[in-house]
Design a binder for these strands. Structure first.
Lengths: 152, 152
DNA sequence: TATATTACTTGTAAAATGCAAGTAACTTGT
DNA sequence: ACAAGTTACTTGCATTTTACAAGTAATATA
């Protein structure tokens, strides 16, 4: 029997443009399917984190080299963008782009799924999401629009 | 400055019960945050794949040891379940559990996000999802209920 | 001007992944 | 009944990724 594969030993290491398959789910998985990317996006979207130092303080304890790598990859995908802090030349301010903010429904469904099937914390957030998903998403989008609406 | 972490070098290798943090998103990421788990679930949910051999034929070309590992992990999480095929003793039939089918909204949002922001294929599926998300989800649930409704 | 802070990089060990080659249990064809 | 094929894996090994600790350049603060 014949097995059709899209990846025939042809994918260079950091080449974002060559995918294993054209499936949209695979595209998402290739960009977000690891143990840290979505947590970084969570901290930006829900906790308002903006700097490298803040991301290092996440509950889960990310390693510094992994954080640097993920920030660079997320930026290369256009999910986040970095600008220098005008008031402190050492700092970079990381923001979610429109593409990044559009991940809010994905995060929401993942939170609701885990909360429904596992013992998890942060029940206030879960209740808020469950009570009115659309209202919650509107709130996220509005907070982003009000102080992050520069570009992209 | 003080950094609070939940994981202090204490997580044994395959221990599903110890999480890096109580955050529900982290729970989802620990179960699904890799490059293959969601693709296997996609093939079960959307393409009706049921056997090891079928999963091996996925577009993206999964390695056999990785497939075996992911099937075992997904089963240990209660996302899928395996039963022997009554008509062929060599085969195992893998099914999504209720918990697995409840991932449909997560998959849907990931597909819609990628389709909105990347060049991807399978536009028929995307159009169907976009046209009426709830109707699409109802269809998935019903197909599952009609021939997979055993347990869990 | 000395010290601290920020956002990293580097080195190295451990773990996960990818690939090829088995293998045991079972089914099929003759 | 027996050889050959299928199915669902396991094993070994090379490569890649991750984790942890330590270091560093640029900038800010006292």
């Amino acid at each position: 029997m014949q097995v059709t594969c899209y990846n025939k030993k042809s994918v260079p290491k950091h080449n974002n443009s060559v995918r294993r398959s054209p499936c949209p789910l695979n595209a998402s998985v290739e960009m977000l399917g690891d143990r840290w990317s979505l947590l970084i996006i969570r901290d930006m979207m829900l906790r308002g984190f903006r700097t490298y130092k803040q991301f290092m303080e996440c509950y889960e304890g990310i390693a510094t080299n992994i954080l640097a790598d993920r920030l660079q990859k997320l930026a290369s995908y256009g999910i986040i963008a970095a600008v220098p802090d005008p008031s402190d030349g050492r700092k970079l301010i990381y923001r979610l782009t429109k593409k990044g903010i559009d991940l809010a429904p994905v995060l929401t469904e993942m939170v609701l799924w885990a909360a429904a099937h596992e013992h998890t914390g942060n029940q206030e957030l879960v209740k808020l999401m469950r009570a009115d998903k659309e209202k919650f998403l509107a709130g996220v989008r509005q907070r982003w629009a009000s102080h992050d609406s520069q570009r992209s």
